[in-house]
């Protein structure tokens, strides 16, 4: 049976993730409220504005519900999702969901005029992958349990820690579903455990 993966649907590039997940063989559901998490095997935190998503997560107790969900279910965050997952955000008092042992810098490559596409090598996923970086963050440093999956000019732009996966760019904005396939596999493996 296909795994069922939710996409946090408060704001951002939601349909693009849904499409990429379905292309990778998963069933999907858009998550706007706590009850939408029920029966899901994994969750994607999409790109968008992290401050907006955080404010909306505080509604309907969604914030705590996602933290509980993440205790044993895989989570994949892209761009704003990466910021939501980080334990430390440079220049900011508290983190958001604090799932991954990573320290991140927001809008790290600059403003929109500096947004770019670049070819990336991603460990275990692809030798060539078109990374679409939009006002993207990057990871400044990682804890000992975090595997670095990709770097762009020495900056960490993709990482994995246990059942958590994250990247600073937007695989959902390309037709290349290999990153999503990798996450779907992580969800399948977690389910078989």
């Amino acid at each position: 049976m296909a795994v069922k993966i939710g996409v946090l649907g408060l704001q951002g590039a939601i349909p693009e993730h849904v499409k990429a997940l379905e292309k990778s063989g998963a069933e999907t559901r858009i998550v706007k409220r706590v009850d939408h998490l029920e029966g899901l095997d994994g969750l994607v935190l999409p790109g968008g504005e992290s401050t907006t998503m955080r404010r909306l997560m505080d509604q309907y107790q969604l914030f705590d519900a996602i933290k509980r969900f993440a205790e044993n279910k895989p989570v994949f965050g892209t761009c704003a999702g990466l910021i939501l997952m980080a334990k430390q955000i440079e220049g900011q008092k508290g983190p958001h969901l604090a799932l991954m042992d990573i320290n991140v810098r927001r809008n790290a490559f600059g403003r929109q005029v500096a947004s770019f596409e670049a070819d990336l090598k991603i460990e275990g996923i692809a030798d060539h992958f078109n990374g679409v970086f939009i006002r993207a963050p990057y990871i400044l440093d990682v804890g000992p349990d975090v595997d670095v999956l990709s770097r762009y000019e020495d900056k960490i732009v993709a990482a994995k820690q246990g059942h958590f996966l994250t990247c600073a760019f937007h695989p959902e904005l390309t037709d290349d579903a290999r990153f999503h396939q990798y996450f779907v596999k992580m969800v399948e493996e977690a389910q078989n455990k």
Partner: peptide, 13 residues
Amino acid sequence: RVKRGMAEMQKGG
């Protein structure tokens, strides 16, 4: 892609 993509990130907002 990065110009249109920026707007994609604003969706629902």
